[in-house]
């Protein structure tokens, strides 16, 4: 496998036991791959399974069938069938994920949140600390906020902490789920820059980016998710 990330005939549905076992199909037959240094953007109307695909790649959602292959150093791991411990190891060294929402322990300061993510990603303490500061500065998070817990921040501020957290440790695969939705134009530009840098460094990027300008800025190849539609399955 030359790709960093490859979906092979992936299908996903939700069984809603609280609604009498209703099966809600999401995607079927999803096959695509992302090479190192490539940026792929999932595209399609809402409800077509873009977010589910990203989450499956991160192991956050299960996969009903098919395989999600990830190149982890010299070997290939199927996230769809990997054990929880393998998935955790992948997250530590191979897959970075920037979600839409920041979920952290309430009391921890913004800087510590980012720094801890750096350490978990294998950075030495000093480097994690330095990079956390650099990233927050580049993302224009006012320094007076660094020592405050992000729970008190605005949506845009929280999102920038989240981005810093996802990007601090260099990992070969970067998953993005609407990272710039709540950001203003100047900050979107900074994020685009950071992502482009990561791409230039050889990272394979798979993301959901609604904003057309942003898409252009990061130079994403479009993957049309509607082709994995599940009308038949429903």
């Amino acid at each position: 496998m030359t790709a960093a990330l490859e979906f092979r005939d992936v299908a996903k549905s939700f069984t809603l036991h609280l609604r009498g076992g209703t099966v809600l199909p999401v995607v079927a037959g999803a096959s695509f791959s992302v090479a190192p240094g490539e940026c792929a953007v999932l595209w399609g109307p809402s409800g077509t399974g873009k977010s589910s695909l990203v989450r499956m790649a991160y192991g956050n959602y299960r996969c009903d069938s098919g395989a999600i292959l990830v190149r982890d150093g010299g070997r290939v791991v199927d996230v769809a069938s990997a054990s929880p411990r393998e998935v955790l190891a992948l997250r530590q060294r191979t897959i970075a994920y920037v979600s839409q929402f920041l979920r952290v322990i309430p009391r921890v300061s913004a800087r510590d949140v980012v720094e801890a993510a750096g350490r978990e990603g294998g950075l030495p303490d000093a480097e994690a600390r330095a990079r956390a500061g650099d990233l927050l500065a580049r993302l224009n998070l006012p320094e007076r906020l660094w020592n405050l817990p992000p729970a008190t921040f605005s949506g845009g501020e929280q999102q920038r902490v989240n981005i810093a957290r996802g990007l601090i440790a260099p990992r070969p695969i970067l998953l993005l789920d609407e990272p710039t939705a709540s950001l203003d134009a100047p900050n979107r530009a900074v994020v685009a820059e950071l992502i482009a840098e990561r791409r230039a460094a050889g990272a394979a990027i798979l993301g959901i980016v609604h904003d057309a300008g942003m898409r252009e800025a990061i130079g994403g190849r479009i993957i049309d998710v509607t082709q994995f539609g599940t009308a038949r399955a429903a």
Binding site: F14, T15, L16, H17, L18, R55, G59, N60, Y61, R62, P84, V87, L88
Partner: peptide, 17 residues
């Protein structure tokens, strides 16, 4: 399973509840 997977995509009826 993985904590975030079980909580975000629970498969069992009781977990969903």
């Amino acid at each position: 399973g993985l904590t975030d997977q079980v909580l975000d995509d629970p498969a069992d009826a009781y977990t969903q509840l």
